[in-house]
Amino acid sequence: MAELPTRSLSLTINGEAIGPVDVPEDLMMIDFLHEYQGLTGSRLGCGQGICRACVVILDHDDGTSEEMRICITGAHFFNGKRIRTIEGHAERDAAGDIVALNPIQQKFIDHFAFQCSYCAPGFVNAATVLVERLQRDPLAAGELEGAIEQALGEHICRCTGYVRYYQATRAVIEELGLAKEG
C-alpha cells in the first residue's frame, strides 16, 4: 500500500473531542466526516463549494460562528477548532433519541420547508448561524428579508422554491424577537 503523507488532526465535533488521528494532509473535511467519522449528514452536492449542501458551523472562541464549505476546505484547517454539524443540533436523551430540535429545525419541519432534504443540512446550519448572529446583534425589521437573502441566498435547493425555508427562517427570527420594529 502506498505511503500517502499524513498529519495528525484533533478537533471538536458537536462538543465531542476527536483525535488525534492521522489523516492525509490533503484530505477534504467532507471526506474526513464521511469516510473517517461516519458522519454523513453533511451532504456532498457539488463538491466544489457552490451548492452549500455540505456547510458546517465553525465556532470561534469569541462566541461568533460562521458557515464553512467543507467540500473545498481541508480537514487540517479545522485542527484545534470546534465545529457543529447537522447531527449536533437537536437535543438528545441518554439513548440518543431526539428530545428537542433547535428553533430552526423545528420551524423547518413545521413549514414543510424541504422535500428530499439533501440540502437541508446546509440550510439548517446557515440559518442557525444567522439566528445566532442576530441573537448577539439584532437588526431592524426592515432589514430582515435582506439578511435572510444574504444568509441563505447562495444555497441550492432543487426540490423546493426556497419559499418555505425563507418563511420559516423569518418566523424564527420574528418569534425570537430578533428583528426590532421601527
Binding site: 494532509e25 490533503d26 477534504m28 466544489q48 463549494g49 473545498i72 481541508g74 487540517h76 484547517f77
Partner: peptide, 14 residues
Amino acid sequence: RQGYLDTCAGCHGI
C-alpha cells in the same frame, strides 16, 4: 504548503 492544502487546493488543485 499546509495552508494551501487546507484553503486553496479544493479549487486550485493539490
